[in-house]
Design a protein around this nucleic acid. Structure first.
Lengths: 211, 211
DNA sequence: ATGCTATCTGAACACCGTTCGGATCGAACT
DNA sequence: AGTTCGATCCGAACGGTGTTCAGATAGCAT
């Protein structure tokens, strides 16, 4: 039954086969995640949000967990970009600058951050590009560590400092919202100050090259 | 259809009303958790494991999340006991002693640890008794911190050190299993050594009283 | 014995992840 | 051009899930 008024063509350009689902599904998933939290992130809800049937995603992702992996990967990319941006504005970027940016990302995208590390724990690790290569996260941390006074010659020591900082940032990101810390956060005048104080106790130059 | 051989009475004493479900459900849940992982921890599976109908738990827990909360609470109790035991054998207990015990608990009970912090993040905090009071976790950390050289007079500073250490331990616990760290763990000769190295970079006396 | 209340069951509802057969369409070949 | 082919999508279905509810059961006080 074709429209009698010919092809007014509805505003929603609803393609026959949709062009490029997959990206659309990932974006839909991020929308659902922001709007309704991680509990509501069902495959069916994502398909609904993207306007396709519940079976459609299976042509682009093996599993639900495969979709989650793609979402997590996109999340780590965004996290990397955020930190890169924070470092860009402060070329002397201290550890705490990066750490605060890290935690802030996690706090601004709590549902996404949760998916990122749920996936990582299931996969026994983060996506490789997160830490590998020239633009990888570890390189950024390494450079900040060297600026902070770690001996760049001692490779094992340097790596351990990086991992230590990364783990701490993750722990802080997951716990900073806990209610029992709220009074202290107020006392310090804001979450960022609180995070700086915590990170400052982990990354402080004086003894960084010892051991 | 009663057994023809009269009442041999099966070994399983299956009570009429069951006496004390709730505890039985929590124990059943921990069993399911160990055996099949966190993904398999459904209310129905727990009820099945306890030998009751899927609706029975609702007389003892408001929700599934209410059950999970109880499980998490039991988990935090067990974690506290584990750390207390570690401190007991080494009365000079350093921070790293406690930290290693903490991480080891998380690694020995991965599914339980995951439930513990999933619940905590949903509730915006850990159970109160985890950190409050004389036997609470924070008191233990405080004492170790004081032994490590933090000025016990500066209350804010002391608390920040405790939180910093706790966050780091949590971050390490969640990330130490990541595949990308495995080579380094081997190089260092075991996970405990690796954890000690990381914790050592966080809790080291020289600059602890500086602010 | 009688009722009261807490406990437990069984069936039902909506939702979930996943699979499968069949409809739809773009593109590639003749 | 017409036809075939393969990727994409839909609708319906399966078993499993959380949750609710009417009714059966059993311990406890009167």
């Amino acid at each position: 039954m074709t429209k009698s008024v010919a092809v007014a063509e509805a505003p929603e350009a609803r393609p026959y086969h949709h062009g490029d689902l997959r990206r659309a599904l990932i974006l839909a998933a991020e929308r659902v995640l922001e709007r309704e939290g991680p509990q509501a992130l069902s495959l069916r809800a994502v398909a609904r949000e993207a306007g396709v049937s519940p079976a459609a995603p299976y042509h682009h992702f093996k599993d639900k967990s495969d979709l989650l992996t793609a979402i997590a990967e996109a999340g780590f990319d965004a996290l990397g970009d955020t930190i890169k941006a924070a470092v860009a504005v402060d070329s002397e970027a201290k550890m705490s600058t990066m750490g605060v940016a890290y935690v802030r990302f996690a706090r601004d995208n709590p549902a996404l951050y949760r998916v990122m590390y749920d996936v990582s724990r299931n996969a026994d690790g983060m996506p490789d590009k997160t830490h590998d290569g020239e633009g990888g996260g570890f390189r950024m941390v390494e450079q900040a560590m060297i600026r902070a006074g770690v001996d760049p010659g001692d490779d094992l020591n340097l790596k351990l400092w990086c991992i230590s900082a990364w783990c701490s940032a993750h722990g802080i990101a997951e716990m900073v919202g806990f209610a029992q810390f709220q009074p202290m956060i107020e006392e310090l005048g804001g979450e960022d100050r609180f995070v700086e104080e915590l990170l400052g106790r982990i990354c402080h130059a004086p003894s960084m090259d010892t051991h």
